[in-house]
Simulated assay, not measured.
Amino acid sequence: MALAAVPGIFVANSGVLPEYQSELPYSGYVKWYETAHIPDWMGAKPGAITAAWRYQSLDPNRELPFLVTYKYPDVAAQSAPEFMRVTLNHPSLPEGGPINKFIKIDILAGSHVETWRSGSTGDARGPLLVTETIQPAANTTKSFTDWYQSTYITELSLMDGWRRTSRFDVGGGKWFALHEFEQRAFEANTTRIGGLLGKRSEETREVERTATSVKLAIWELVRVYGDAKDSWGLPGTDSIL
């Protein structure tokens, strides 16, 4: 019997290395990525990726300002050999590439766990995104999940402009979340998020205090590829708050 498909995410966060920024200006990198690489990656294995969302960091000093999130209807497809054959060369790149000579890239991949959304939220993604990577204290998976589901998501939902939160298991005891917001949710000059968004409870402060690492960043949605309304989880499984 075939295993049921498990939806998942592939996240690529990248930027041009300082020593190559004169050879490959960021604008040139963006053009290559948006017009060549994303279409190549999405087309490598038909049906393996249904949508991609391209974000730009709001922090002008962020080392890796370029972010793409890809929706895989089945995470098993991420290991398909077709993706290994995607070219990293292009005439628009210095020396014709390969691109990995000129950039730094951080990658995360994992399975969808759960999504919550506001009752007034449609399927389109929010214009602002806060990414959150948490490595909680060792041996706290159950208590962490209980906190997330019973406390943290409530705190998030009370924030003005909150649209949707999707959580993913990216392995090694680490969790990754996408928090979508309306434009009004943050001040126009906000460029950096320092810690967990929900700080109304002692439980949240304790998770942040004891976690091995907590990383947050704020982004603006720039471009969508494929099905812009594709949900991260299985259809109809979002929890409505």
Rank of each mutant, 00 (worst) to 15 (best):
G161F: 09
D238N: 12
P136C: 01
M42F: 11
D40W: 04
R205P: 13
F176H: 12
L93D: 03
V224T: 14
A211V: 14
K71D: 00
K45E: 15
A109C: 00
E132A: 13
G43H: 11
V16R: 12
T140N: 06
E19M: 12
T151D: 11
A217D: 07
E34W: 00
V86A: 14
W116D: 02
S57W: 04
I105M: 10
E182H: 11
P73R: 02
G171L: 08
E187C: 07
L178V: 01
D160F: 00
K101N: 13
K229Q: 15
L64K: 15
S213H: 10
P235N: 05
E19Q: 13
E187K: 12
T121G: 05
Q78H: 02
A76M: 04
P136F: 04
G122R: 02
I9V: 12
N189H: 09
W175I: 02
A48S: 13
I103K: 07
A177W: 07
I9S: 00
R209S: 14
A77R: 01
P235W: 10
I99F: 05
A52L: 01
D169K: 04
L234C: 06
N189E: 14
T154A: 12
D227S: 10
P235C: 06
V6Y: 03
R205W: 09
P91C: 11
S92M: 08
